[in-house]
Design a protein around this nucleic acid. Structure first.
Length: 597
RNA sequence: GGCCUGUUGGUGCAGCGGUUUAGCAUAUCUCCCUGUCACGGAGAAGAUCGCGGGUUCGAAUCCCGCACAGGUCGCCA
């Protein structure tokens, strides 16, 4: 090794000993005769002093040093003269008096600050990601991610899980997201697909008798990116045989609570994780991934508001719609332009508009509400009693603002749910140190797609329906319940899993119901179903997203901040400049001719 | 594909129709400095204000189009 110690290791105990450090120039402070260098490596920063009276030669070298130069320094660890200690640095009580130094490499002036935590344009950061990762924030995120993955591996190994790799080149299947395809050289016109997840493979491992499997698995989906979605992401893929839903949930709760305790002990977790029915989540929060760090639950007001003379409400009720509201505490003083902003907000989610009731001006009991202190366009078409009743249902007080959306049930839930999220953020209702985990359970097996006019799997086609519902599978598909569960945390879907179908008959029946012909089933899933003829055990699993988990733990707002080399929103790697054109010979080998359209 | 936001020296920001010769901070370069730690001091260099059109006597500033980026809807079993 070119070094005997790491910068972050230097402690008072080493005073008097000779050490050799190697790292990067974080900062140089040149006092003419005396030069201080903050030397940085992965573990931290150590101050190196170049004194011409100790070594004229080293001092001359130090005069040439610039930010990010790579150095090897040898010298004695010394206590700093009293009064010059730096309490901000862990190594601030000591310094290294350099007597030998070598510049291992020079550096151009970096395009942005490595040694300061300032916002830098993400294009520039991604282009120079190798420099961006030198910054403390990124290094911390990489270390956190390593800690998370290590904990998970140890935890699952202790529980008897086998870590098994599955291939990256697999078969394209219908359903789900758009596949990334890889052309086959040996088979003209044929393609591999990159896995959207190792779903079928892990089920086949259960048929193989592995019983407890996990993998830190790369997954690929050729869909548009978001703050929490990238073309490739990492899942903790888990599958177990002879389990019931309860076993998986218990395991996950133990994993996550243990993990937080170990890697983020400063975060608060509510135990046990609440379990919320899918239907209730939509009803109360308008989302299947609610942020449970704050309340502000939605309440149905259709029965009250529908009684009023307000034409908007009457029409919505006549059309079979519903009317729901939330209560924003202390927001009765919102200005017209603030309200208009919120109106636009709900409209962007398809709602006709937002109806507001400002309840008085000063805080007080809702029963003291008077008609002249209610501000709302609907007020004159409603009785004071009706407005009070709405307020009571939403636990509102005087001084609060009631926000109401009316329309088609799905649109109301979506728009008001997003508004709840937005208001929670504006009012800073969510405790940043709280991790509000919850299980979302009792999903329906199918969901009706209005556009294709088909029933589609709510989750995926391998989910085990409740046995007592199997008889109504074809007759009343919307009523079939699924052994399917999500883990949500702070408004993000962190994991998704299910107990799987393990008999070929039922699996075929589901495929047929979803509209596949027997020939298609054979072609797309023949191998998979064949395996199930040979004693497939009951099994199930779950797959938490590592990127999202680490993002939440790191307090970051995009998963790009916890990935070493992410792509931008348009799926471009700005550093490698991928994707790129390839040589004509490569295309020829792959039997590919480009279309020009 | 739709909607919203942004684009000003290397980086971060200000300027939002007229003494602006585009300002500030920081980085960079030169010189000075033996106890700094976001060292300090003096000086220098560095920008056709994303691109293209238009309005105007006059545009970084107003309008239109385009590009790029971010957020989001659609999409994401």
């Amino acid at each position: 090794m070119l070094k005997t110690h790491y910068c972050g290791e230097l402690k008072k105990g080493l005073v008097g000993s000779k050490v050799t450090l190697a790292g990067w120039v974080d900062r140089r402070r040149d006092h003419g005769d005396l030069i201080f260098i903050d030397l940085r490596d992965r573990t931290g920063i150590a101050q190196v002093v170049f004194n011409p009276q100790i070594s004229k030669k080293s001092h001359a070298v130090a005069e040439q040093m610039r930010s990010e130069y790579v150095l090897k320094v040898t010298g004695e660890v010394s206590l700093r003269p009293s009064g010059t200690e730096n309490l901000k640095l862990p190594s601030g009580a000591i310094e290294v008096i350099a007597d030998e130094v070598e510049i291992l490499n020079t550096s151009k002036t970096p395009p942005f600050y490595i040694n300061e935590d300032t916002e830098v344009d993400e294009n520039v950061r991604l282009k120079y990601r190798y420099l961006d990762l030198r910054r403390e924030r990124m290094l911390k995120n990489l270390i956190l991610r390593d800690n998370v993955v290590k904990f998970v591996r140890d935890f699952l190994h202790d529980k008897g899980f086998l870590e098994i790799e599955t291939p990256i080149l697999i078969k394209s299947t219908p359903e789900g997201a758009r596949d990334y395809l890889v052309p086959s050289r040996l088979y003209p016109g044929q393609f591999y697909a990159l896995p959207q997840s190792p779903q079928q493979l892990k089920q086949l491992l259960m048929v193989a008798g592995v019983e407890k499997y996990f993998q830190i698995a790369k997954c690929f989906r050729d869909e548009d990116s978001r703050a929490d979605r990238q073309p490739e992401h990492t899942q903790l893929d888990i599958e177990m045989s002879f389990v019931e839903e309860e076993d998986i949930l218990k395991l996950m709760e133990e994993l996550f609570t243990g993990l937080i305790e170990k890697v983020k002990p400063d975060k608060r977790v509510i135990k046990p994780f609440p379990r919320i029915n899918y239907k209730d989540a939509l009803e109360k929060y308008g989302s299947d991934k609610p942020d449970l760090r704050f309340g502000m639950e939605m309440r149905d007001l259709t029965d009250i508001a529908g009684q009023s003379e307000f034409s908007v409400f009457k029409k919505v009720v006549a059309d079979g719609g519903k009317i729901k509201g939330i209560c924003a505490q202390g927001c009765a003083d919102y200005t017209r332009s603030q309200l208009e902003e919120l109106n636009k907000f709900v409209q962007s989610y398809g709602a006709g508009g937002l109806l507001t009731f400002a309840l008085g001006s000063a805080p007080g009991d809702i029963n003291n509400l008077t008609s002249d202190t209610v501000k709302s366009v609907a007020a004159k078409y409603m009785t004071l009693e009706q407005i009070k009743e709405i307020g009571q249902r939403l636990d509102a007080k005087l001084g609060d603002l009631i926000l109401v959306v009316a329309g088609k049930p799905k649109v109301v839930d979506k728009a008001l749910g997003e508004l709840r999220r937005e208001m929670g953020q504006r009012l800073k209702l969510a405790d940043p140190n709280l991790l509000a985990f919850a299980f979302i359970v009792n999903f329906p097996l199918f969901t009706w797609n209005e556009e294709t006019k088909h029933w589609e799997p709510e989750h995926h086609p391998f989910v085990w329906p409740w046995p007592e519902d199997v008889s109504i599978l074809e007759k009343n598909p919307g009523k079939v319940r699924a052994h399917c569960y999500d883990i949500v945390c702070n408004g993000f879907e962190l994991a998704s899993g299910s107990i799987r179908i393990h008999t070929p008959e039922l699996q075929r029946r589901i495929f047929r119901f979803l509209g596949y012909s027997d020939a298609e089933i054979e072609e797309k899933f023949g191998g998979f179903l064949g395996a199930f003829e040979y004693g497939a055990p009951p099994h199930g699993g779950i797959a938490p997203g590592i990127d999202r988990l680490v993002m939440i733990l790191a307090g970051e707002s995009t998963i790009r901040e916890v990935m070493a080399f992410p792509k931008n929103q348009n799926a471009v790697d700005l550093m490698l400049e991928a994707p790129s054109v390839v040589r004509e010979e490569q295309l020829k080998e792959l039997h590919i001719r480009l279309r020009d359209d």
